[in-house]
Write a protein that binds this DNA or RNA. Structure first.
Lengths: 339, 339
DNA sequence: CGAAATCATGTTACCGTTACCAACCTTTCA
DNA sequence: TGAAAGGTTGGTAACGGTAACATGATTTCG
């Protein structure tokens, strides 16, 4: 490998001259497309390697009108959930020549618009984005872009093109079902106050609806702002139980604060799940290993990422209905009484 | 916003025709570059919005020979550490017009080569990549690419261009120092068995060197494969303490397994930090809220991301030496005796 | 054995944008 | 008032590849 301190960046022309064939032939060799004799191929490859040539995808993309990028737009990277989704996307894209490009919106609709605009300006082959709620501008962009668009995580709503996710209403409802079946009746809820977290909102709605059907009302709620952590979970759990000491169940909007609550309750000597039951949401496996396994709902994050990637890559056909609803699976853990 | 179901994608020409000016002028308006009269600007902007035009960065990048992308190459997204770094990078890049593009290597050198090659083929404005150890091919690519290249996390070695990070040798050494100062002498180590995790290796080397200086030898080690979780931490802690019951300190290679170990020890009734001390590494704040605060070293992840981003964006000059060494900060927590 | 098929390579015309320079139109000011 | 200066706009030629077609060489096969 000659380390050529070149001022001018290398182009196909350089490789072409170095190997004595046309640029077109070099291009064919480097992309493994079309017929090229073994001898020529070898010459070209050697020349390319020697020079240290790296193809220019900007030029290639412009010429071919195809770009092997998939835009992935998600609200956050700071909790565990979206990295898991990304993992699913990435693993499924690995053998397709497609590459994910991630944009983060921080749960802000205007950032989402900006990020989408930016992503689309790269003319990707597909778009995967979290949620079904988007600004009018975003919907317009996506409806007319003429690409596979997969909205992930949530299926409670009308997709622009295709949706892959779980029904958060159902997840909430089924958890309520399980809690009621175990005989708990004085139920409290602890969650983030984020108007833009539509999935948390729908989960709570599904949860409360099921309670209402059973003639039960949520006995207390506690909201917090900002990120979720064990400490936040402790703090809110203490607060809600101080305010409403006779609660017999706490439903947390995610596993992290649920785990914090669990630790606090164990320290205080609460009888779990006997006198007090707990449940979270997500199914974060990092937390296996707490003194008790927190009841939770597996949100199918990796599967969602995989299926979405399969659809944008064309491995899997878009379903007629446009919706792929995975089943949120309740993991009972040790913090709900056996019914 | 007219939703034009166009077959042919929109180009500058469409906007130019719709607004009655040249493509060049439209381009100027859309980029805020050069002088354009207010009236023209308004006309163009209206036309662009009406049509729903999104600029084509592929074409723009080719023409201008500039691409507002920064390649970020990291080993993993599945633990907390790299998302934190990314957060730092992203926040610092926000106001620069530069956009991070992430590639994940899964700690595989050959994947790193492939990811780098792929990234460079997009002709980014800069490269940020984890670690100082790279294949010969990767080094060659990066040395000749003529871009800012920032290697992050680690400063124990020779950077290709610039390095921003902490000395893991020093981090290990200082933790050893603190442990010795607190009077612990029978010290065990628990870490991943990953030959490619050079930083963990250097940390341990620094740790052992300091112990050796003090005439102390590592009394036991336990290695594991695969991801870190609370459960893994428990399992390994149990194993090492069963094998070597008289250990008085456990040094974990990260906070997650450290926390698992801590939980296990607390359950078993170990006197912490009296009879047994514990320490991890990273300074993961998600874990604040455990029954005790685990001693750890803040690896300065967010700062590292920020400084790296500042350098590739030109906000901050590359230091003469090529190295920015941040100080790993020990957070004593509650699991080391006060000396 | 000659026409057709196939293989291996080259030629030409873009892809959609921006850099550069020229042209024109105002305004300024000696 | 006329030349210089500055603001505003447009024409043209890249940027570095790839698609599509053309060409010449070689093979296939009735």
């Amino acid at each position: 490998m000659i380390t050529k301190r070149s001022s001018r960046p290398l182009t196909l022309r350089d490789v072409s001259e170095a190997s004595g064939v046309s640029e077109m032939t070099v291009s064919r060799v480097l992309r493994n497309r079309g017929d090229v004799s073994a001898a020529t191929r070898e010459k070209v490859l050697t020349a390319a390697r020697t020079l240290g040539y790296v193809p220019n995808k900007i030029a290639g993309g412009l010429a071919s009108q195809r770009v092997n990028l998939v835009a992935v737009v998600i609200p956050s990277l700071s909790n565990m959930v979206f990295p898991d989704v990304l993992g699913g996307v990435s693993s499924e894209l690995d053998d397709t020549g497609l590459q994910p490009v991630v944009g983060v919106t921080h749960y802000s609709p205007s950032r989402e618009d900006a990020v989408l605009y930016d992503m689309l300006s790269w003319r990707p082959s597909g778009v995967i984005l979290a949620g079904l709620e988007h600004s009018q501008a975003a919907r317009a962009m996506l409806e007319n872009v003429g690409l596979p668009v997969v909205e992930i995580m949530d299926v409670d709503g009308e997709p622009i093109d295709t949706a892959v996710g779980i029904s958060h209403r159902r997840a909430g409802s089924e958890m309520a079902e399980g809690i009621l079946a175990a005989g708990y009746r004085r139920i409290g809820f602890i969650g983030t106050h984020m108007p833009e977290d539509h999935r948390a909102r729908k989960r709570l709605a599904g949860f409360e609806d099921r309670l209402t059907e059973a003639g039960v009302t949520l006995a207390a709620r506690e909201y917090y702002q900002g990120g979720s952590s064990l400490g936040k979970g402790r703090e809110l759990t203490e607060r809600i139980l101080t305010r409403e000491p006779d609660l017999d169940f706490l439903y947390f909007s995610n596993d992290m604060i649920g785990a914090g609550g669990l630790l606090w309750c164990l320290e205080k000597g609460y009888d779990i799940p006997g006198k007090l039951g707990l449940a979270g949401f997500n199914g974060v496996d990092l937390l296996d290993g707490l003194p008790m396994r927190l009841a939770t709902t597996d949100a199918r994050r990796v599967d969602i990422g995989r299926r979405a990637a399969r659809i944008v890559s064309g491995k899997e056909a878009r379903p007629e209905s446009g919706v792929i609803a995975l089943s949120p699976t309740i993991i009972p853990g040790d913090t709900i009484r056996k019914p």
